[in-house]
Design a binder for these strands. Structure first.
Lengths: 223, 223
DNA sequence: AATAAAATTTAGGCTAGACTAAATTTTACA
DNA sequence: TGTAAAATTTAGTCTAGCCTAAATTTTATT
């Protein structure tokens, strides 16, 4: 492991992990935006992470970074903390799913391994957090996610909501209101070529709902 | 309030508060020992805290520091966090009373006011933590503590254990074993002039126990 | 009261992790 | 394929909070 993995480094690794999940390598700019710091600051840190012993990222000038095995383990540790904490806060302290993110973002860096283990135990070793996101296992393996964006469905397709993006509290409140939450079944009644709107029938809801891509791109389903 | 109250500053204030409780002002050295840093570093921080706007401590060269009203409020906020967290960890995650201190020391700096309020609510607004220490109220008032050291009792006196010092896990485990925990009644069967040993009859325990001052000075009772 | 020991402060330095401004490289597009 | 825009890196600063060594003040002891 590197000299020490600070809270700041944990944040870098977590966001690089998430960026790596989508497009291959994480760009300086994207990292800077997510961490809300100047791009120049990111460059400095990436160089440091790349030359740590052992290296936490693979970095080539002007080409962004990828996590090494070590970097990924450290990232998954933080992500596991985060998602267990979100679950814990909801079930134990009655937080709603749009309130947990900020709190977990701070706590994830300071809880002990013992705390992590006790939470997992108390929660019955959950595999998903309140937003349906997969929780890395205790030995730091991220389960495979099969889900696809709701936006990719077309008329008459049916699916089960699996997870929703957790970083916009307002969106989360809206989704809760219209019943679009994990494990709920939906049917696509129609699709609009022009704006990408989907008209959905949501399990347990009396009337259909029309959602734009700003929403449907943030909701993931299993067909 | 000062520019920002960092985690480091919170730690200073917390320890100064505790030192102020005993002897009047907190000395540079005592603070350095508690924080495990060099005395010279403490001097620097004290000067900074004294010239913050508003000042958090009153500092006179070579004479230690006292908290201002603002400094005390900030200290009590941290102490309230700490003691609520200890209680929460014990009741919710099954921690034992000798394990909670370290965890609470990290968490106390990062939880939100919302988290604090939810814990207090979930725990039924407790007034003491698992070690019997008083929890500052939500409006940051420290309740008055009437208890006196067990070491000050003499033969035939009876008392109720109110609280025990929480910073030595080994001592805590020992006290738990011999049944010396908050709310338990004890009777002093004998006192030794020479070594200060007390022979105690502890409520709920079959045989008496002999305790030295290293222990009896850390246990506080109400007569 | 002199002086040694202990406590404290001053002075100067270091590291982590951020910043801005300027230079450079890459990308996009006419 | 040349050039402008965007992205990235370099260079130089800054702050917080710690450090050591040396100087000073206080306290304790003879």
């Amino acid at each position: 492991m590197p000299d020490t993995i600070t809270q700041s480094i944990q944040d870098y690794l977590k966001h690089i992990y998430e960026l790596n999940e989508h497009g291959g390598s994480a760009s300086t700019n994207d990292i800077a935006i997510r961490l809300n710091i100047a791009p120049a600051s990111v460059t400095g840190m990436l160089q440091k992470l790349a030359s740590a012993t052992p290296p936490l990222v693979i970095y080539k000038k002007h080409q962004g970074v990828t996590l090494t095995k070590n970097g990924e383990k450290a990232a998954l540790e933080v992500i596991r903390h985060h998602r267990l904490l979100e679950t814990f806060l909801v079930t134990t302290l009655g937080y709603s799913w749009d309130e947990v993110h900020r709190e977990a973002d701070k706590l994830e860096h300071v809880i002990s391994e013992d705390f992590e283990a006790r939470m997992a135990e108390a929660l019955g070793h959950p595999t998903r957090d309140p937003h349906g996101e997969l929780i890395p296992t205790a030995d730091l393996v991220m389960p495979v996610d099969e889900s696809c964006p709701l936006a990719s469905l077309r008329t008459d397709e049916t699916a089960t909501v699996r997870r929703v993006s957790d970083d916009d509290p307002a969106l989360l409140r809206h989704l809760r209101e219209i019943g679009v939450v994990p494990e709920v079944k939906i049917v696509v009644k129609s699709y609009s070529e022009f704006d990408g709107n989907l008209t959905l029938q949501v399990e347990g809801q009396k009337s259909n709902v029309v959602l734009g891509t700003a929403v449907t791109s943030q909701v993931f389903v299993d067909k």
